[in-house]
Design a protein around this nucleic acid. Structure first.
Length: 303
RNA sequence: GGUACCAUCGCCAAGAGGUAAGGCAAAGGUCUGCAAAACCUUUAUUCCCCGGUUCAAAUCCGGGUGGUACCU
């Protein structure tokens, strides 16, 4: 099977991924696929820092606004969607450029994680949620031990999310499996000094509120969305929802969004560090960063 | 000016004579189907300052400094 060449532009929130991606896409006849677990949702624009029509500069973008805000979407769906898009774009002789901050999505794609091995089992999950409520994580852990002692050895015993998934897999006699990844990746990780990044995150958050984040969430709320929806659990949405319900003050809301965004950026950076074969690009000097990436891409496309 | 109360990590805060809880932040980390999620680790030799009592003081006493409340 022929591997398709794909360029990845990763990095923490607010580092400027979208802008670089558009610039590179124009130079290399590229099309952009978003790897962002929030920008997939229609109607979540301001809070997700979604790229605008104008900012796209006529470069084709995929993976944005592909879900209704009440729908669910997972890493599995992302891989499916994106693999298909990569094929399409490559067929057009364009360069697929995957841009985003959702680490698992990208890792699953590049490492060939096979999520198809075990499907989500809603009924089982409901039972396990009850078990968690009654017996806590210990209850879940004991069950996992019975089902798959090997898996229980390495699991994070305190993490209900992981325990539930591990049990789900064990019940289906599943194992983590890999498939042959159909892509050849060139991965860039954009980075900036932490302090600068945090300052920009704070400033961007202020701007989101000026641009009407509260109104955006208000509208979604009126559509019937609640904190039970996946989309409304995103940073910038859950806090505003909490404010609209009168649980926190306006000032608290703004501070929390900033704080959660900073925490998120830190986790993204940590996640990237664990990925191998990543090419780090310091983007404080914009022009230099573009040149570096341009050269790497040229080399990548040659062979 | 007088009286009362308070002063513990960047912030909130427990502690009441026996050797500094906890939460938040921060830093580091984990990661195969909600990942903007979930979870883990680390972080005050020292309690505003000075002196005293005591085997032992963040805790008791005296003085200073700062804050808050009330009175004149």
């Amino acid at each position: 099977m022929k591997k398709e060449k794909v360029v990845f532009i990763l990095g923490p929130t607010a580092v400027g991924k979208s802008g670089f991606a558009v610039e590179l896409a124009k130079k290399f006849n590229g099309e952009i696929i978003s790897a962002d677990s929030v920008q997939i949702f229609k109607g979540l624009n301001i809070g997700s820092a979604k790229i605008t029509k104008k900012e796209m500069q006529n470069v084709a973008h995929h993976g944005i606004d592909i879900c209704e805000p009440e729908e669910e979407f997972s890493a599995f769906n992302f891989v499916q969607f994106t693999e298909e898009k990569i094929q399409e774009i490559s067929k057009r002789k364009h360069l697929p450029i995957v841009v985003g901050g959702t680490g698992l999505y990208v890792k699953a794609l590049t490492q060939g994680y096979n999520f198809g091995g075990t499907n989500k089992d809603e009924k089982l999950r409901q039972e396990l949620e009850d078990l968690l409520k009654n017996k806590g994580v210990e209850g879940l852990f004991e069950l996992l031990q019975k089902l798959d002692a090997h898996s229980a050895e390495t699991i994070d015993k305190n993490n209900p999310v992981r325990l539930i998934r591990a049990i789900e897999i064990a019940k289906n006699n599943g194992r983590k499996t890999y498939k042959q990844s159909g892509i050849e990746a060139l991965v860039f990780a954009l980075e900036r000094p932490r302090e600068e990044l945090y300052k920009d995150i704070n400033a961007r958050t202020e701007k989101m509120f000026k641009d009407g984040l509260v109104q955006e969430v208000q509208a979604l709320k009126e559509q019937g969305l609640t904190e039970n929806n996946q989309s409304m659990r995103a940073i910038g949405y859950k806090e505003v929802l909490s404010f609209l319900k009168g649980e926190i003050s306006k000032e608290q809301m703004v501070e929390l969004v900033k704080q959660h965004s900073r925490n998120y950026a830190k986790r993204q950076i940590t996640f990237l560090r664990s990925m191998e074969g990543v090419c780090y690009i310091e983007v404080s000097d914009r022009q230099k960063a573009i040149e570096q990436m341009e050269n790497k891409i040229k080399e990548f496309l040659k062979c």
